[in-house]
Design a protein around this nucleic acid. Sequence first.
DNA 1: ATTATCTATAGATCTATAGATAATGC
DNA 2: ATTATCTATAGATCTATAGATAATGC
Lengths: 226, 226
Amino acid sequence: MKTRDKILLSSLELFNEQGERNVTTNHIAAYLAISPGNLYYHFRNKSDIIYEIFQEYEKLVDFYLDIPENRPMTLDDMTFYLESVFDGLWSYRFFHRDLEYLLDRDQRLRHDYREFTNRCLASISCIFEKLADGGIIEPQPESLRSAMSLNVWMIITNWMAYLKTAHVATASASLTIRELKQGIYQVLTLEIPYLMPAYREQVMSLREQYRPTMSGHEEGAEMKEG
Amino acid sequence: MKTRDKILLSSLELFNEQGERNVTTNHIAAYLAISPGNLYYHFRNKSDIIYEIFQEYEKLVDFYLDIPENRPMTLDDMTFYLESVFDGLWSYRFFHRDLEYLLDRDQRLRHDYREFTNRCLASISCIFEKLADGGIIEPQPESLRSAMSLNVWMIITNWMAYLKTAHVATASASLTIRELKQGIYQVLTLEIPYLMPAYREQVMSLREQYRPTMSGHEEGAEMKEG
DNA sequence: ATTATCTATAGATCTATAGATAATGC
DNA sequence: ATTATCTATAGATCTATAGATAATGC
């Protein structure tokens, strides 16, 4: 594997595990056992590394959220979309954590991310439309559908932050992808009132599979300083 | 005003305007025209400043979310709670932006924030209960109510991040409290399907008052680097 | 010849403290 | 006497580059 690709891969790994803020170009170079000079030969700075990683993330999610136009949507489709989006979030989980800062630092990223969000919102709205076509949920007027889509998007993208800040008791307790996917429970909560009777039971039992287990919620965590 | 209080006040101001990550102890001291040494005489480090600011924030929100037990809830009450919570968010808006990092750095803060979130969730759930008592929304089973409350909480606390990352086109475009309160539109979206017919129209027109105007959504922002 | 890598380092911060001095409160 | 403040600075990073050297591809 080329050094350039190793830098991207290791950066992603370190960012995900320690947070972008805690990972400098020095750390990345040290982790790969190359010199900082070598890293700067391949990338102008940390922003450039992050921008390329974002483009991979974008490509992945765009691929997942490509909605087939020509057939009605099934419950399995919906499950697939939800699972896929959370898989993507997991693989690039550092990204949303420091998003505001990253966008302030890189105008290209700000521009691309904004269009990315709009595409995701359009896809979610389209999924709602096709779920109605498939008789799974009630049809909704456009304006309600777009407000709902935005709520779904906010819950998807911020569920991890909730888990890391309010749920787990310790900083070191690392989250699993399984816990992240409990976000699906929260997303399906939004759909409940719109479910058609024929599918209600099925969706409710699907939702039940993602119910948060409240693990990691141990009380009595020590308040150790430093 | 005592120097100690000035430090807290100026720190909050700088954090809100520039983000906690971009504000060092040096910046705070320079802004106040005092020496860094003087700042360190009053506070052990930046974490301690942030912890005290959090405690103010916590106090404010706890005060707002103190639900009177002995009378039914009106629409005006609900509006007041929503307005107040967003006012609090606005005054301490730096806080949620770098939350994960801050909690990783300070175990006291992690512990206190976790309990703070749980209190807020309980208050939201209680508001839903009393809205049902007041005949404004349908009564909900406890498990649905708590999942709904969590969704409301995520939307409230992350609406600003959405605005700053996906909505406004430029980094410098500063948000107004008016735009922040458009989050109320999104929160009320969640309530729609549960509204009792007698209040449906009233709530819908209340919601309409917060509808996002899509200002700041100008296309064609230059992709200027640096 | 070109591409990849390393060594060494300048320059810019930032945090936090020691020690001196000034201001204030009995 | 105690509290508040300043000056000066050590020590730790981090970013980014210059310039030398090694490896690779015709």
